[in-house]
Amino acid sequence: MTPPVAPAVAADAFGLGTFAASGRTFVGLLRDDLVFDTRPVLGPDATIRSLLADWDAAIDALAEASPSLTDGVAPDALEVLPPVQPVGQILCAGANYRVHVEQIVQSTLRNAGDPRSDEELRAYALQAVERQAQSDPFMFIGLPSAVSGAHDDVVLWTPGDQHDWELELGVVLKADAHRISPDEAFDHIAGYVMSNDITVRDVMARTNVPLTDFVTSKNRPTYFPTGPVILPARFVPDYRRLKITLKVNGTTMQDEMVADIIHGVEACVSYAAQSTRLSAGDMILTGSPAGNAGKHGNRWLRPGDVMEASITGLGTQVTRCVAPPQ
């Protein structure tokens, strides 16, 4: 008899986020799609950032007290803030899922008028995937000012018309990290978080310099909807078994297992820590899987679109796209 497959997330798992009600901010525990106030356990002044100082002890205390927490409310009844306040440093991995790299190379070349056949473009794209797998992770810097909450509107700022989605699995650190190995990475990770790396494709390339403009294309306000919660790492036996799903107006655009990742979580954290000194509360995003707008006939985001995003065990983001203010 085939042994049963263990769940991707532990049955007693819960997430922790930052919520507000009646003008008061508090750490909320998300379980069974309800948010429970942790102030009776942690005290009135606890924040996610303060919990990071002794994260494992805080999770132990909440795991023991979780069954006794009552009067949970739906996240929609609360203001859902980014989990960590204030937001720390953000480092982002790009071109880090095999099928995504294949699709983005093909769509970029096709949109630029490349005359090669679909078969030739796919062969070229597969070569790009293998080159990426043989190299170090590619990472760029995100700006904390671009982070917004899991229910906040996404402003489709101009210049640029080709607004795209990139739902990503990230991690939040619980301890400082510098020049650590991949094997040491999990000693520094508090848990997993999701963030949607909104990207404006038609302003990434600058005509006057041969460089990518990551500030204009990825770092404008509301371009990193993040949360609603951090899922403690202890509840996830294998992050590669998590599933990333994003829908636009109810139509599924991204639906991929993290197993398609090229450089895993531990490799991304270690690589980032080789170049910079990471701190508790910093967030490392590990790249987006297949299914961006280029794969869907250049179906770019428009005002009025609603994105519903989820990753196994990490709750749900619901964000509405709006036009920029006049």
Rank of each mutant, 00 (worst) to 15 (best):
M139E: 06
F36K: 08
K243V: 00
S22L: 12
F140R: 13
M194A: 03
M139S: 04
F224N: 13
F19E: 04
F214G: 08
W157K: 04
T212P: 12
N249D: 07
F138N: 14
L29Q: 06
S148E: 03
C92N: 06
Q85C: 05
A259L: 08
T316V: 07
T199F: 13
L314P: 09
A125V: 03
T108P: 13
I198Q: 03
H263A: 01
V147Y: 13
P325L: 03
D45Q: 07
A205H: 14
A11W: 13
D71P: 11
L121I: 00
N292M: 14
A8F: 15
V99K: 15
P182R: 06
V203N: 02
V154E: 02
S288A: 06
M253E: 04
Y239I: 02
A177G: 02
V35H: 12
A53W: 13
T276N: 14
A280C: 05
V105R: 09
V84K: 10
E119A: 08
L78S: 00
F214T: 05
L34G: 06
R179A: 10
V306T: 08
T286G: 05
R49K: 10
I244Y: 13
D152R: 11
N298K: 09
A46Y: 06
A11C: 11
P237F: 07
S217C: 02
F186Y: 13
E79Q: 11
Q274A: 09
R302P: 09
S22I: 05
N249M: 05
S145P: 15
I262R: 08
C321W: 10
S288C: 03
Q134S: 15
D260R: 08
D213Q: 01
V73R: 12
C92R: 08
D71V: 02
V318W: 14
A65M: 14
E166C: 01
G113V: 00
V27L: 02
N249V: 02
E266Y: 14
F14E: 00
E266F: 08
T108S: 11
V269Y: 06
T158P: 15
D136S: 10
P210L: 00
P82V: 00
P4Q: 06
M307R: 03
C268W: 06
I244S: 04
R110V: 01
P137M: 00
G149M: 02
P225F: 00
D114T: 07
R179P: 09
L121N: 05
A6R: 12
N111S: 12
T108I: 02
D56H: 09
E130P: 11
H163V: 00
P325C: 03
D176R: 05
G250K: 07
C92L: 12
P75A: 01
Q274H: 14
V87E: 05
A11N: 13
T276I: 14
P325A: 04
A133C: 13
L51W: 13
Y271Q: 02
N219W: 11
R131I: 03
G294T: 01
P7R: 05
D118G: 10
E130R: 14
S107D: 01
N96W: 15
I141C: 15
A95M: 11
F186K: 06
V80N: 07
E266L: 05
D164W: 00
A280H: 03
G315N: 12
R277I: 05
T226A: 04
E119C: 08
A128M: 14
F36V: 03
T47Q: 07
D187P: 10
G149A: 04
M257D: 14
D164P: 06
L301F: 07
K247H: 08
